[in-house]
C-alpha cells in the first residue's frame, strides 16, 4: 500500500538495564472490512495485522492486530536495554506489504 509512513520515537541514550519508553505510529487506514461504499459494496478489509519490535535480533514484542483497531495505529511500550544496539520495527500489511524502521540506542 502506498503512502504509509511509519514513525518511531526511541531515546538516543539509556543506562544499562533501564526501561525506556518506545512510541510508534504508522499512517494506515485500517479498513475493517465491515464498511460499505456508496454503491453498497463491501470495502475489502485491509489492516496491519502484525507488529513486531526486535532488539539486536531478539524479539521485544510481537503484536497480533485486529480490525477494530482504528486508523493510524499508535503503539507504546517499554523495553529494557542491556547494551547498545538497534531496534527494528516491522509492520505487516494484509496486502503483503512490510514496512520497517530502525532506531539506534547507545548504552553508556
Amino acid at each position: 500500500m502506498d503512502n504509509v509512513t511509519p514513525r518511531v520515537r526511541v531515546p538516543k541514550t539509556a543506562s544499562a538495564g533501564e526501561a525506556i519508553l518506545i512510541k510508534t505510529l504508522i499512517s494506515h487506514p485500517m479498513e475493517s472490512g465491515q464498511r460499505k461504499d456508496s454503491d453498497g459494496n463491501i470495502i475489502p478489509r485491509e489492516i496491519i495485522n502484525r507488529f513486531t519490535c526486535d532488539f539486536n535480533g531478539q524479539n521485544v514484542v510481537d503484536v497480533k492486530m485486529e480490525p477494530a483497531i482504528s486508523t493510524n495505529p499508535y503503539l507504546e511500550f517499554q523495553a529494557t536495554v542491556p547494551e547498545s544496539g538497534t531496534f527494528t520495527f516491522t509492520w505487516y500489511d494484509d496486502d503483503g506489504s512490510v514496512y520497517t524502521d530502525t532506531k539506534d540506542i547507545a548504552v553508556g
Partner: peptide, 12 residues
C-alpha cells in the same frame, strides 16, 4: 509532535 497524528500529513 510525536503524539500528534497530524504530523504524519506534515511529513507527506
Amino acid at each position: 509532535d510525536f503524539d500528534n497524528p497530524g504530523m504524519l500529513y506534515v511529513d507527506q
